[in-house]
């Protein structure tokens, strides 16, 4: 058969594409439930990480079910039933008291960054933080996903001395007060992105936080 005939090329490419697309969609559909489950476990693991609890993968779900309760609030800070528009947060009963975990999401230098930040029950002191990223530069921006960077957040405050909401910021010159942590050198944009993410996400919970502090 003449392999350079147009009809051969046409039929060949159609068959190739149909076979490849068929196999890939089949695989995607078959593996979908398993992948979704992995993502769910991953999310729970991240929430627990912000609470400084790091169970083995197989224990994540049990630990989560035991410790964490999901609640939702509206923009005025009232507790409401969980709907898609409601702001979600997580209340955890740890052996160090009640902690509040807030989900964070924002954009980094190359792609999305996200994480969770947990506050003590004074809703001011940070208990722990967890960050992850899709594609920040390895060795630079990607360092936000390391223990080394995240552990700095413990004990910091989101309100300043005059009780004004200032969030926790990274500072390139080094942390100088209770509202700052060290930025990552060489990763200015990712560090700034972390600032913006924490501030903007916590801000939407501010009515709830201020209401609960009183």
């Amino acid at each position: 058969m003449d392999k350079n005939k147009n009809s051969y090329i046409f039929i060949y490419s159609v068959i190739l594409v149909v076979v490849v697309a068929g196999v890939l969609s089949l695989v995607a559909v078959l593996l979908q439930p398993k992948q979704a489950k992995n993502l769910e476990i991953e999310q729970k693991r991240n929430i627990l990480a912000a609470l400084k609890v790091t169970p083995e993968t197989k224990d994540v779900e049990d630990t989560y079910a035991k410790m964490v309760k999901e609640i939702a609030v509206d923009e005025a800070g009232n507790e409401v039933d969980a709907t898609d528009d409601a702001l979600k947060l997580y209340v955890a009963h740890t052996d160090k008291g009640i902690k509040y975990v807030f989900p964070l999401s924002g954009k980094g230098l190359w792609g999305p960054i996200w994480g969770y930040i947990s506050l003590d029950d004074d809703l001011n002191t940070v208990f722990g933080a967890y960050f992850d990223h899709k594609s920040e530069t390895s060795g630079l921006g990607a360092e936000i996903a390391t223990e080394h960077f995240q552990s700095q957040f413990s004990g910091k405050k989101i309100f300043d001395r005059s009780n004004k909401f200032v969030s926790v910021k990274t500072n390139k010159r080094g942390a100088s007060n209770d509202n700052e942590v060290n930025a990552i050198s060489g990763a200015t944009i990712t560090s700034t992105s972390v600032n913006e993410m924490i501030e903007s996400c916590l801000k939407s919970y501010l009515p709830y936080i201020e209401k609960s502090r009183k």
Binding site: K3, Y8, I9, Y12, S13, L16, V17, V20, V23, L24
Partner: peptide
Amino acid sequence: TIPGRIRIIVQLVVVAF
């Protein structure tokens, strides 16, 4: 079986697959 004129595309499909 690969037609010479579209071989690069075929290779690319295989790799991406």
